[in-house]
Design a protein around this nucleic acid. Structure first.
Lengths: 225, 225
DNA sequence: CGCGCGGCTCAGCGTCCCCTCAGGTTCGGG
DNA sequence: CCCGAACCTGAGGGGACGCTGAGCCGCGCG
């Protein structure tokens, strides 16, 4: 579960971040409205915690902007003042809930869980490169019409490469993101798994989507090979 | 739009009723938990406003009872005290939102609208995947022409998977949503019940609607297998 | 009271996956 | 052409994961 916390009060932001991380969430931070909007656009978060009073761009505007782009990520507003119109306006602009500062961590958690339960049942976008398709939600991969069965690790690797298709991705970066960073395995696993992927998504179709860039890493061709 | 207001403080209840009627809602009243539960069961309301402190049956219990019956009417809790655990418990019991008394009418309206917006999105009457049909209201399941008898737990599990058909649903998520989170059972029950379901809805028909995605969870195929 | 049923736990088993290792191959530089 | 570095690949061990049959418990009912 990935959360985004947009909050200009740095101490509070960090406290919330630590608490939520302790609960097992992955938490990104932004400290002003513009940065928050940027991140929310790209980040595919499960929930966004959004302060109303923000420098650069108010939380209210951020909600408006996201909704205008048909981005339905669940938004939990944080409001310092309890001026009722602010909150009501925020909700009408498309936020899903709000909390009044100061709030207790227990309440925050309960609200978050409620939002997550509810979910923005909008599916994450399908990743595509040529005729190669990967659906993160359904956890399926197809090339043309044929479905391809991948193991967990293979899937994670291909998803990462697809998200950065066209770019060269270093072996170290793959190790860090696709494998758990705690006890890093032999770098050789990357080669091994690239081999597995090639045999599943390239060889049977006589294609070459996965390119080795000697000394630099690997690249998934944007056109699918 | 029909609303139900369950509130023992008669003057407040009537005030809210008048206000909401002025906004164009149809508003029924109940003044204790038992009557509220009765009405909520039969009434097909779009939203229920529910006081937590109620004679006969607390609002918290009413939520529990309705959710246990898989009645997903959107519920907005009204709480007099602001003891955080009450609100958190209420939300965890399945309420959708809460307001702390005293609340302003503007905020109440905004929250209501947020709930209505949300509520309208989901909750289709009958869930379908291929020739597999599940009717939550009638509590029936059929595959093609044949009716299938399921136990309570099997039904709940299948319903959840159907609501997210095509997506992979993690074991933890199933535990959290299909089983009560209070005393979480062994994760193995999920496997056990998936086995039961397979024997009832897949094996007799020589189909494979329920797919295991090793390391990730289970997926109910959108086309029914 | 005995019985059946539904819900759950447990332990055993088979399978699949992940990772390592070692030997082979390719590539580029000198 | 030679050499080393980088990469590929087949084989295999060990562990994680999921499935299933057996069994226990509580409950409702005849």
């Amino acid at each position: 579960m990935r959360l985004l916390v947009v909050e200009d009060e740095v101490r509070l932001a960090r406290a919330v971040q630590r608490g939520l991380q302790a609960e097992g969430f992955t938490v990104d931070l932004a400290h002003d409205g513009r940065a928050g909007l940027e991140l929310a656009r790209k980040g595919r978060y499960d929930v966004v915690l959004l302060d109303i009073m923000l420098p650069e761009l108010s939380g209210y505007r951020v909600v408006q902007a996201l909704r205008a782009e048909r981005n339905w990520v669940p938004i939990l507003l944080l409001s310092a003042k309890d001026g009722e119109y602010d909150q009501a306006d925020g909700l009408d602009a498309g936020a899903d809930d709000y909390l009044t500062k100061p709030f207790s961590f227990v309440v925050l958690l309960a609200r978050l869980r409620a939002l997550l339960r509810r979910g923005a049942r909008e599916r994450p976008a399908v990743l595509i490169a040529g005729d190669l398709r990967l659906d993160p939600a359904a956890r399926t991969v197809t090339r043309g019409e044929t479905a391809i069965a991948l193991t967990t690790r293979e899937f994670a690797l291909l998803e990462y490469l697809l998200r950065r298709r066209g770019e060269v991705v270093g072996k170290a970066e793959l190790l860090e993101h696709v494998w758990d960073a705690l006890t890093p395995p032999e770098p050789n696993v990357v080669e091994v798994y690239l081999g597995y992927l090639r045999r599943k998504i390239d060889a049977p179709f006589d294609r070459r989507a996965l390119t080795t860039v000697r000394g630099a890493g690997y690249r998934l061709e944007a056109d699918g090979g």
